[in-house]
Design a protein around this nucleic acid. Structure first.
Lengths: 143, 143
DNA sequence: GGCTAGTAGTTGCTTTTGTAACTAACAACA
DNA sequence: TGTTGTTAGTTACAAAAGCAACTACTAGCC
């Protein structure tokens, strides 16, 4: 006997559908403009938004695996969007820093992101948005 | 000059973080129990929850590309979880149907899904959940 | 019938991700 | 000093996703 079950009530499914739908459209922007991958724009945005830091710090903040970050950092470096600086006190660390070109790209994409977010937000009430964001943050923190 | 921007306010990012966090934990269940992939449990749940249908219908309902569904269907067939029936009137179509074993697996995973969802839901108020689901459905429908 | 166009589904190839093993550097302590 | 354990980051290989070209079939139209 088959149980009744509606995927439209299952949170992990709903979250994925919503996440895919929204981020696919934003992806088009950074991909077509700068040939960037998902992890690359995330790294760029962490450095641009929160200042210089090591790869490890990005891993912790973004919840990304170090191999993904490692590859993204290299890709951004190849594009001349960021620059590494070895720390003399501990040569295992490298401080990552956006180049002027990287900052320009970041600023450009921040503009896109803000417009994109506003357009999404315009479809909902302030109450809905407040609740949404609060709940999403708590869900994300479960991991 | 670098603009101020907080990823924690950017919806596509928040949605992805929340979706990743929740579905990663559910993934462990169907992966460890039945060696299933993400697309495979989706296909299984569409057939189990909404009845027999063609691959095309699953594509439309789930917003999945036909190649992904094609491979998932084959994988489920190899596991003896579903069975294909050619439609004589139009031999391009195949009706997909869960086998008794497939139904057992579906029922088992529905149980897991319900428990999983309840545990997630218990952290939020009814109001929050209502708003969340309503907003997520609308976001998902944008695509 | 025979041509053209369109649809359902599959296969092959490339890009991206995931995982585990590796290197290089530091730290602590015998 | 040297040995053991730990950390930051990379590399190499396997699994999965994405994309385009393909097969097999149906439908419409001449």
């Amino acid at each position: 006997m088959t149980q009744d079950f509606d995927l439209k009530d299952f949170m992990p499914y709903l979250l994925n559908q919503a996440a895919d739908a929204t981020s696919l459209r934003f992806q088009k922007l950074y991909k077509s403009k700068y040939g960037m991958l998902r992890t690359e724009w995330r790294v760029l945005f962490h450095l641009g938004g929160y200042g210089d830091m090591t790869a490890k710090e990005i891993c912790n903040r973004a919840g990304l695996h170090k191999t993904k970050v490692s590859r993204a950092v290299r890709a951004l470096q190849d594009k001349r969007f960021l620059q590494r600086t070895e720390v003399p006190e501990d040569r295992r660390h490298e401080i990552l820093k956006l180049t002027p070109q990287g900052e320009r790209v970041f600023n450009d994409l921040v503009g896109d992101a803000k417009r994109f977010d506003e357009k999404l937000a315009s479809r909902f009430t302030t109450d809905e948005l407040d609740t949404l964001k609060r709940v999403l943050v708590r869900l994300a923190d479960l991991a």
